[in-house]
């Protein structure tokens, strides 16, 4: 039996009369790369915010990293990492200053901070750039750095919200290698993306349409089920009936 790190049942979020997320239920396992797909406006971001402890569900229940999404948002925040679709480091601070800031936020001891910093910088080949302002780094580097900093405190789950927007395929490929490395270490990766080739890299994929999860399985099983050659086709078949658009 695989260990579950995210388990939600009938999770719903309403804003007034608008139901942004409509009774979604799924489990995510430890060390899994879980793709969370959906067109714009499908409710992905709202769902993810609930999982991150940023917003309370209207109804339903569930746990993230063993903590209740209804009551223990603050505890959840301590056990997850987060990297946003927009850039999430400070451009006017150096690489090392960013690392220290986030180490401070997650209360790493000075010793552990130093050790993790060296480890992270050498893995990225960034040792010589540690006193460079982040704003001066190329976008691909920044994103790798942002990912590494999001996992600095060794969270159980790391949430990536469209992490590879705007970079070239080679850099994206390198980025995914980092994700695999992290997953092999036992970190669960929960990722949203618009790139269907990236969906193929995920262990399992869920597709949201109009606030509901319409499909959830491995990429191979989904392709079989929808008699499709690629995830792109699967996505289009499922999303075709979408009533909501941005």
């Amino acid at each position: 039996m695989k260990e579950t790190v995210i388990s939600i049942r009938e999770l719903t979020k309403r804003f007034g009369r608008f139901t942004a997320v409509d009774r979604i239920s799924f489990d995510v396992y430890k060390g899994e790369i879980f793709g969370f797909l959906g067109a714009n406006g499908a409710g992905k971001t709202t769902a993810m915010r609930m999982l991150c402890g940023l917003s309370f569900p209207t109804s339903g229940n569930g746990t993230v990293a063993g903590f209740d999404v209804m009551r223990e948002g603050e505890m959840i925040k301590r056990h997850i990492g987060y990297m946003s679709q927009r850039f999430s480091l400070y451009d006017d601070l150096t690489v090392m200053e960013n690392i220290r800031l986030f180490a401070g936020i997650y209360k790493l001891t000075p010793y552990r901070t130093r050790r993790r910093a060296v480890e992270l910088l050498s893995r990225l080949n960034f040792l010589n750039e540690r006193h460079t302002l982040v704003g001066a780094l190329p976008l691909g580097w920044k994103q790798k750095l942002a990912f590494s900093i999001a996992t600095l405190h060794r969270p159980e789950i790391v949430f990536l919200d469209e992490p590879t927007g705007g970079v070239d395929p080679i850099t994206r490929r390198q980025f995914w290698e980092l994700i695999y490395e992290e997953a092999n270490r036992g970190t669960t990766v929960f990722v949203t993306t618009h790139y269907m080739d990236e969906a193929e890299y995920c262990a399992r994929v869920s597709i949201m349409v109009d606030g509901e999860v319409r499909a959830l399985d491995t990429p191979a099983a989904l392709k079989r089920q929808f008699a499709a050659n690629s995830m792109d086709e699967v996505f289009r078949t499922i999303a075709r009936g979408a009533k909501r658009a941005e």
């Binding site: 991150c52 402890g53 940023l54 603050e74 925040k77 301590r78 997850i80 987060y82 990297m83 946003s84 679709q85 927009r86 850039f87 999430s88 480091l89 400070y90 451009d91 986030f102 936020i105 997650y106 949430f159």
Partner: peptide, 13 residues
């Protein structure tokens, strides 16, 4: 605007 506030809010601070 830059998006860093989101990251801070997801953090336990």
């Amino acid at each position: 605007e830059v998006g860093t506030m989101e990251v801070l809010l997801v953090s336990p601070v």
